[in-house]
Design a protein around this nucleic acid. Structure first.
Lengths: 338, 338
DNA sequence: TTGAAAGCGTTACCAT
DNA sequence: ATGGTAACGCTTTCAA
């Protein structure tokens, strides 16, 4: 096949009998072109089959038009990358969609050992999902002057360039819901992993208990093996003299394990024990019984993150953190008594 | 903050006291540079903090250095995109990793309504995962002269530019395993959705049954609502006079539903009914009992796809399809009799 | 072994 | 309302 070279803006210009400037103005929606000329140019673009080369635009404008998304590294990873839970997936898809909507491309980046690799990416900005406390990648990127926003906040940061869920509010929502359903002893299965999402939930839970003078019941598990550690935590909880009648299992992977362990211990969900999950996902809908969960609204979070990053790249200097409210999806695991 | 303009190759050159040509040669590993000069240049690059601008390279070389990955659109989608099952996620992560390994970027692309959007992406090549029969995106990209490879094959294609799993081989592996575990009536829950993966499995299953003079038992479900349609299929199967003692549930989402429906119908897995899933995933490991499944090896598939696409972009004109062998991960759902 | 200079395709500035 | 042309940062060709 004799593939001839791709058409350029000059080809369009000569085809339409105008200058390249005019073509450029037309495709960029500048108003200085006569309507007739405009039509002619548009026809020519179509006829010639021209599409503006991103790299040329990028070179001219100094911006690559690419954002990178850096996912957290968890244990169930593929190589050094992670993509595993429903939430992460949804986040990736939604970020990609939002990026395209703003005429950008979303690049998936590694959380590399050598963080300098991140700098060499040559992107306009980076989104870091679930930064660790004092995240190294964040530090390096900031040092290199590359705009960053994070999804969930780095505990050490105060600059406002992040998107977060209303953790306190959603924790209250969960606990209030359980109380309304008749729960009297609600336990929290959380984690001390270095993410704000965990610590803020613990705080909110503790405060909520204090307000009612209920005794908090907290078990921290290892997020790298949520299944086994959550199961162990549940077994211990259920062996107490006054075991909980409801559990808020926050980390990914924990809720299913809690359900299994509780069932194995002879408890029925929701009759003997109610259960709420910290992050919604397909598997929770398919569980028996289906499990009530917090929908963190990854789509909205992604959109907010892209917007925020776009603003930062554009040079905006003020920004409060963007807050996305979670939604409680009630399912059978907390609706038995109704 | 007074952010000065990013350093260019000229800055490096003047800092090192050489010409830009020499700097370029050094960073691109051309051999014509004196070792001492090379060292000096490398030091200068580091000192100045320069990183080559991708867009400039791209403009000069005519290649953007970007591959796009186009995911299949399923029903559980986020907007017009999909990322849902474990397999898709793993694929995305692995493609991104493989792309970076070959010094390229992986862009996540939509499966757009207006397919011309795909052409406007301005990428060097596109990977289409799970093309439909006579996939429109494929046709358009081919028409536009943009190199494409697919993951799994488009049934109408014969050009060899795709990566596929050894569907026939893995179907035999599943059936042989079940037979070895004592199964005598194996049913297949598949689909007539227009993907080679489904039709080839049905064919292989039928052939396998014929070889043994077993009566095939096939139920086709709606892949867009695997949960309900698979459950219905199972209920019907179990009501037969001679119900199956093993089920190969191929579509994503079906196996869990089969397990639930079978349990609800009073069957124990694996004692009364063995179960194998067509695609492995986290949820199958967490099920009770854990479900035996085919691991399609997304990481290997991704690597093969990137390599293949790289070859096609480079102008290679011969290519057999790349075949990646699946692996059977045996779990409790087929191991009860041992 | 090294350097100067010509592009790559696009947009922005300044003329007309 | 339109066109000429000089950048943008890099690689490659050609000359020294």
């Amino acid at each position: 096949m004799n593939r001839r070279r791709a058409p350029t803006i000059r080809d369009v210009a000569s085809f339409a009998g105008v200058s390249v400037t005019t073509v450029s103005d037309v495709v960029n929606g500048k108003g200085r072109v006569d309507p007739d000329t405009r039509k002619r140019v548009i026809a020519a673009v179509d006829e010639v089959g021209w599409r503006p080369r991103r790299s040329a635009r990028a070179l001219r404008s100094g911006q690559s038009g690419v954002f990178a998304l850096c996912l957290p590294q968890r244990d169930h990873s593929v190589g050094d990358w992670l993509l595993n839970a429903d939430y992460d997936m949804a986040l990736v898809a939604a970020c990609a969609a939002a990026a395209v909507d703003s005429d950008r491309q979303l690049l998936l980046a590694p959380r590399p050992k050598d963080v300098t690799d991140l700098v060499r990416l040559d992107v306009d900005g980076v989104i870091i999902a679930d930064p660790q406390e004092g995240d190294l990648a964040l530090t390096v990127l900031n040092g290199a002057g590359i705009p960053v926003v994070t999804i969930e906040r780095d505990l050490r940061r105060t600059d406002g360039w992040w998107v977060e869920t209303d953790t306190v509010g959603s924790t209250y929502m969960v606990l209030d819901h359980l109380a309304a359903q008749g729960a009297e002893r609600i336990a929290l299965i959380g984690s001390d992993a270095p993410w704000a999402w965990f610590s803020e939930t613990i705080e909110a839970y503790t405060t909520w208990c204090e307000e009612r003078e209920w005794r908090p019941q907290i078990r921290l598990i290892d997020v790298n093996k949520p299944t086994t550690s959550a199961a162990a935590a549940v077994r211990r909880l259920l062996r107490l003299r006054r075991p909980p009648d409801a559990i808020f299992a926050q980390p990914q992977g924990a809720p299913l394990s809690v359900l299994a362990a509780a069932t194995a211990a002879g408890r029925r969900v929701p009759d003997d024990l109610m259960l709420v999950a910290g992050i919604d996902g397909q598997t929770l809908q398919l569980a028996h019984p289906p499990i009530t969960a917090l929908d963190l609204r990854p789509v909205e979070i992604a959109r907010a993150a892209i917007d925020l990053l776009a603003r930062r790249v554009a040079g905006a200097d003020t920004a409060g953190p963007e807050v996305v409210e979670a939604k409680l999806v009630t399912r059978q695991s907390t609706l038995g008594h109704v």
